[in-house]
Amino acid sequence: MGGFGSVSGITQTLAKATPLLLVGLGIAIAFRASMINIGGEGQIMAGAMASTMCALALRDLPGIVLLPLSALAGTLAGGFWAFIPGILKARLGANEILTTVMMNGIALQLTNFLLRGPMLDPAQIAAGTNIPQSEALPMHVWLPRLVPRTLFHAGFIVAIVLAVGVYILLWHTTLGYRIRAVGQNRFASRYAGIPVPQYMTLSMTLSGCFCGLAGAFEIMGVHRRVVEGFSGGYGFSGIVVALFGYLHPLGIIPASVLFGGLLVGADRMQRAVQVPSSLIIALNGLIVLFVVSSRVWVEYRNNRRAAQQASQDTNDDTAAPLPTRPTPEQERA
C-alpha cells in the first residue's frame, strides 16, 4: 500500500516523479550556472496556461501536430517566465532569488485572473456555476496513460529521455561546458571570452523551459484542463529533488522517483492510518533534515577509510579518493 508496494502505489509515485524530474532538471541547469531559480512554481503555471491556450485555440489540428505544438508552447512560456528574471540578473544585477519568488506571485494571480475571465470554461458560464477552470483539452492532445486507470502518463518517458539529454548537453557540448564555466567562475569565464550575461540568461531560460514543460505535461497528462491548485508545489519540491540528485541529471532521476515515493507514501499513510496530514509534513521535514545532515558522517567515514588505506600504502582501487563534485555555491566562491 506504500509508495512502492503495489501497482497503484508505483504508478502514483512515477506520476508524481514526472514533474519533479522535469523541474529538478531545470533547477539543475540554472544552478550549474550559479543562477538560483526559486520560480519553478510560476514557470509551471505559465507553461500550463500557454499549452492549454494553444491546444484549445488550434484544436482542429491533428493530434500528431497539436500535441507537440502544445508542449512546445508550454515550454516556451515557462522559458519566457524565467527569461525575465534571467535577463534582469544578467544585465541589471537584480537578485534572481527575489525576482523569481515575485514572478511566482504574479503567475498565480494571472492564472486566477485568466481562469475567472478569458479562459473560463464556456460550459461553466452556460451552467451559471462559474467554477474557475478552463475548458477541457481536446482528446487528441491528451498524453497517453502508460497504465490504464492510473495517472501514470507518457510524459515520464519524455522526462527520462530529457534527463539523458541534459547530461549530454552539460558535459558533452560546448554550450554545456560554457554554462558550467560561467557557474564556476564568472570572471575567469569573461576573460576566456565567454559572453557571461548571455549564458546566465540562457541557463535561466532553459531552466524555465523545463519547468514550463512540466506544467504542460501536468495538464496534458494528468488534469486535461487547468484547474485551481494543479501546480501543487512542484516548483519547490523540485529544488529539493535537484539538490538530492547532486545537481546531476542522472542523479535527479532516482532522486525524483524516491522523493515522489516519499510524498505518495506519506499521503497513503494519512489515508491508511488516518493520522493528521501535519504529522506527515513534520516527519518529512525531519527526514529531509536527517538525510541532508548525514552527509558529513558519510564523508567522515570515507575520509577515514581513505586515510587508513593510504597509510597502509595499498594499491587497492577502493582507496582512490572520491570524486568530489562541489555544489555550485561552493564553486562560486
Binding site: 519547490f236 539538490l243 501535519s278 516527519l283 518529512n284 521535514g285 541532508v292 552527509r295
Partner: peptide, 17 residues
C-alpha cells in the same frame, strides 16, 4: 548540510509540528 535543503526541511518540520 546543504543549507538550501536543510532550511526546507526545517520549514516542513515547523509547519507540520
Amino acid at each position: 548540510a546543504e543549507q538550501g535543503i536543510s532550511g526546507i526541511g526545517l520549514y516542513l518540520f515547523g509547519l507540520g509540528l
